[in-house]
């Protein structure tokens, strides 16, 4: 980033690092993509309900993650959620309570695996805030993008294309989950 002045706000680098943290590993990326494809079907009204669950879950997950619990469990759980969400997106719309529950669980496990390494409290706090903002923005833009595509190209080919992409993401998630189990 090109700063006009050489003295950026202290700790701001940690914030930017935190923003991209929820997108840094395949399980995180797959879970967000799958959830975006699924929640995009409910854009914009019902999406807000699921997004609230995600935001609340992420707070819980970040607290548990900072306490040092379940990083490896979180990655596996994210792959399970990615598989379930993309399967649901490939098959068709369901009652919003199912994606809402998935979004809450995804937020929790995404927060759990996205915590920074131990360090000074101030720097960690800034990074965690960045992570929280980044995770929520990623879900918002993924779902909003899919919702926009569905509205803008409300044609059979667009809807079929999204279902096929969801099936591909489910396939990749399934393989990554198997690899995670054997590793």
């Amino acid at each position: 980033m090109a700063f006009a002045h050489g003295r950026p706000v202290p700790g701001v680098e940690g914030f930017y690092t935190g923003i991209v943290h929820p997108l840094s590993t395949p399980p995180q990326l797959l879970a967000l993509l799958a959830l975006g494809l699924l929640l995009g079907q409910y854009w914009p009204r019902k999406f807000i309900v699921a997004w609230r669950a995600f935001a609340l879950g992420a707070i819980g997950g970040l607290i548990v993650g900072i306490a040092g619990y379940g990083h490896s469990l979180g990655e596996r759980a994210l792959l399970v959620i990615a598989l379930a969400a993309s399967l649901l997106a490939a098959i068709g719309p369901a009652s919003v309570s199912v994606p809402g529950t998935m979004a809450g669980a995804a937020g929790f496990f995404l927060g759990m695996v996205s915590t920074p390494d131990a360090g000074p409290l101030g720097a960690m706090t800034v990074t965690v805030i960045g992570t929280y903002v980044g995770a929520n923005l990623a879900l918002f833009y993924a779902s909003g993008g899919i919702g926009w595509l569905r509205d803008r190209f409300n044609k059979p080919w667009a809807l079929i294309g999204l279902q096929v992409i969801a099936a591909w993401i489910a396939a990749i998630s399934c393989l990554m989950l198997a690899l995670n189990v054997v590793s």
Binding site: A90, V164, W168, A170, A171, C174, A178, L179
Partner: peptide, 22 residues
């Protein structure tokens, strides 16, 4: 026309998972 290309990768991944798990 669209169901088969959706079904195939899903079940193929299941077969792939069996291969990975030995």
């Amino acid at each position: 026309i669209w169901l088969l290309p959706v079904v195939f990768p899903l079940v193929m991944a299941f077969g792939g998972a069996l291969g990975i798990l030995g």
